Amino acid sequence: DNLVIALHSYEPSHDGDLGFEKGEQLRILEQSGEWWKAQSLTTGQEGFIPFNFVAKA
């Protein structure tokens, strides 16, 4: 599955970004460039995340 774990917390800075906490698990929905579309397994919310803040779970 496309699961990743957050290496750092991220505060959203643009509409459509997904904020998350360090250690949170996310499911990657789309990989494109440096911003990936993801869904939080904690909150169920979707949005874009910086790819370098996460690692394969």
Rank of each mutant, 00 (worst) to 15 (best):
D1T: 09
D1V: 10
D1S: 10
N2S: 09
N2R: 09
L3K: 05
L3D: 04
L3H: 05
L3R: 06
V4A: 08
V4E: 01
V4H: 08
V4I: 05
I5G: 01
I5Q: 04
I5P: 00
I5A: 03
A6H: 04
A6S: 04
A6L: 04
L7N: 04
H8Q: 14
H8E: 11
S9C: 08
S9I: 04
S9E: 05
S9P: 07
Y10C: 06
Y10W: 11
E11M: 14
E11K: 14
P12A: 12
P12M: 06
S13D: 09
S13P: 05
H14S: 10
D15Y: 12
G16T: 09
G16W: 15
D17I: 08
D17P: 03
D17N: 09
D17Q: 15
L18K: 04
G19C: 08
G19S: 08
G19P: 10
G19N: 04
G19Q: 09
G19I: 04
F20G: 00
E21I: 13
E21T: 13
E21D: 08
E21V: 14
E21F: 11
K22L: 07
G23L: 03
E24A: 05
E24I: 01
E24D: 11
Q25G: 07
Q25P: 11
Q25L: 15
L26W: 00
L26D: 01
L26P: 00
R27Q: 08
R27D: 03
R27P: 01
R27Y: 11
I28T: 02
I28A: 00
I28Y: 01
L29C: 06
L29K: 04
E30I: 09
E30D: 11
E30A: 08
E30M: 08
E30T: 09
Q31E: 12
S32T: 13
S32V: 14
S32H: 13
S32E: 12
G33L: 02
E34H: 14
E34T: 13
E34P: 13
W35P: 03
W35N: 06
W35T: 07
W35I: 10
W35K: 13
W36F: 08
W36S: 02
W36V: 10
W36N: 01
W36A: 10
W36C: 10
W36D: 01
K37V: 11
A38V: 13
A38S: 00
Q39L: 10
Q39F: 08
Q39W: 05
S40L: 05
S40F: 01
L41I: 10
T42Y: 07
T43D: 04
T43S: 10
T43I: 01
G44F: 08
G44N: 08
G44I: 02
Q45G: 07
Q45K: 15
Q45E: 13
E46R: 08
E46Y: 12
E46G: 03
E46P: 03
E46W: 11
G47Q: 00
G47M: 03
F48K: 08
F48D: 04
F48Y: 14
F48E: 02
I49N: 01
P50H: 08
P50I: 06
P50R: 06
F51R: 15
F51P: 14
N52M: 09
N52D: 12
N52I: 08
F53C: 12
F53P: 02
F53N: 04
F53I: 07
A55K: 09
A55L: 09
A55Y: 12
A55V: 14
K56A: 14
K56S: 13
K56R: 10
K56N: 11
A57Y: 15
A57E: 13
